[in-house]
Design a protein around this nucleic acid. Structure first.
Lengths: 188, 188
DNA sequence: TCTTACATGTAAAAGGTTACATGATTAT
DNA sequence: ATAATCATGTAACCTTTTACATGTAAGA
């Protein structure tokens, strides 16, 4: 078996290739190096082997470009299989487990959502996220209440900061929903 | 060479051992499994080898407990070298690079700060963090401005969410500073 | 009795990190 | 001329993941 699921890093490559088709490994390195994107490694030792894996798995296809002017490079495109793997990932339900692991994966999924599944997918995604966050935050608060007695002030503040981060996420979700809904009414 | 620096995971083990001395591998597994702590792996395959590494590096010391009642277990304590490694890490200056990589490492450092370096270390740490955040956020805003034109709505919202997360961090820093300063005046 | 919690480990496979290696092109 | 940027890769080393392996004690 060629491994069940892809890592976040591999999905981010898939999504980036899809958005920048056709692009080479170096283009992707630049994204990781220059933008506040996910903060994955931009080292050649991580990107080139990962691209080779994705190509072996037939999720992307690479062709060495033949031009005289520019240096030789390998241009990648998403394959049909790659696109459907990306779609499956984006369609995954949002669960409590996603809350515990934090937002990075969900943020990444949202970043690719519109371009891959269309604008219509954004509102349901955010509504599901809103629901899970609204359920999760009170359990975090309870955890803080019960744990903080014994701990230090700074440990308590650190936990408080963690909760604030989730509340902030919820605020963002609501802002995003607002904007998307406003767009919709404007169009219709 | 036994490797220059420890991973976040290893520092978190060091800090937890220090706070719960003496404790065994299973105690640490429970922390990772049951609390919203950093979200490191609680698998035995990551924890026991890591503890063995830390012991080989003489940062912790483990002794097999000899009691009749409880099952055999290995209790760890921080060594003098481990404590000073922890202190060095906590004393590290806060830089722009820390902003780019995100807050998890800084949050972890703050969580251990008071118990290892004393309450006096909290305010300077937060002040440094406040300064770097206040410098970094405007550069993020500029990045959003320049990049968002070409991108999709959802990609723009995702970036906006990233910025909001940093602003939320800054709000937390100010709240924490407030509380700490209030304490100080109350005590003095 | 059966399951859950306690408790510690190892082995194989996969992946990431760091450093090395190479070489063309473009700007200073 | 020299440095920086473009461009792709490999090799050694280390860590993590997943799964296996073992066995006790307590509670339902």
């Amino acid at each position: 078996m060629p491994r069940t699921s892809l890592s976040l890093f591999e999905f981010s490559l898939l999504g980036l290739v899809r958005d920048r088709e056709p692009c080479c490994g170096y283009d992707l390195r630049k994204v990781f190096a220059d933008t506040p994107m996910g903060s994955f490694s931009d080292s050649p030792g991580s990107i080139y082997p990962a691209l080779a894996r994705l190509e072996r798995a037939k999720l992307i296809r690479g062709r060495v470009e033949e031009t005289s002017s520019v240096r030789r490079r390998k241009l990648f495109r998403l394959s049909a299989g790659g696109l459907s793997a990306l779609k499956r990932w984006l369609h995954l339900p949002i669960t409590q487990a996603d809350m515990v692991r934090g937002m990075p994966e969900l943020a990444l999924r949202f970043a690719f959502l519109e371009s891959v599944l269309g604008r219509g997918a954004c509102v349901p995604f955010l509504e599901a996220l809103e629901k899970e966050l609204a359920l999760y935050i009170p359990t975090l608060r309870r955890h803080l209440q019960s744990a903080q007695a014994a701990n230090s002030l700074s440990a308590g503040l650190a936990m408080e900061g963690g909760i604030m981060a989730y509340e902030n996420r919820l605020a963002w979700v609501r802002l995003a929903l607002d904007r998307l809904r406003r767009m919709r009414t404007r169009i219709s």
